[in-house]
Design a protein around this nucleic acid. Structure first.
Lengths: 106, 106
DNA sequence: ACTTTGAGCAACCGATCAGTTGCACGTATA
DNA sequence: TATACGTGCAACTGATCGGTTGCTCAAAGT
């Protein structure tokens, strides 16, 4: 199974779950109350989120509290920053080309 | 069709395409040279990226150059920042709880 | 002990996805 | 004008997805 973060956050329901549990740990039932689906469907989403370590569980009696693994979210930042770097490199390159053109003109 | 950015970047091939054209505009054929798939498959990916405005086209004779729409990428930043805000709010709240506990202890 | 409650797991279903093959169309080039 | 090239589009296929229903199991409540 090729579960990665980007696939995990692709689904709107999963993004909503992430937003929900970002504020406080919640049980599957409590999470499901916020959606128009069955608890099992939410459970499936939680399994996917757990599989790619975006979420961690904490058993408390027969209840399981799910909370966000903030560190893992940074992987998205990392990708975005890599992209920004490439973009800036391109921008500098363009600047270089422009200054070269200027020089040539001289 | 519910094409949104998050679904667009869920696919690894599409992320690779984004990284490729972030540096410079490229034609579908040139892009396809970097992958083990057919040109048509890449064309499909480009259509999806175009549909959610992550990519823009520029016709040049019979060739079409695709380049990255950096502004659109910021939508990911926006979501991440919203999440960060929630996370920080939670952190402050936790701090408040801790200080309240301290006071109670006194 | 019996019942209720919270939760995960498995099997199924329709929809969507990523990829392929085949085709059509416009633009260069000979 | 005939041919090669670059591209998009449509139809098909196997795989995956998101969701439902039904089951089991363990922990709480009576």
């Amino acid at each position: 199974m090729r579960r990665d973060i980007f696939q995990a956050i692709a689904d709107p329901t999963r993004r909503a779950i992430i937003t929900l549990i970002a504020l406080q740990a919640m049980t599957p039932n409590a999470i499901a109350d916020n959606f128009n689906t069955t608890r099992q469907a939410i459970s499936k989403h939680l399994r996917i989120l757990t599989e790619c370590e975006l979420v961690k569980q904490e058993q408390q009696g027969r209840e399981i509290y799910y909370s966000l693994e903030i560190e893992k979210m940074k992987e998205i930042d990392i990708w975005m920053n890599q992209l920004r770097k490439i973009w800036e490199a391109r921008f500098n390159q363009l600047g270089h080309v422009l200054s070269t053109m200027k020089k040539t003109k001289k």
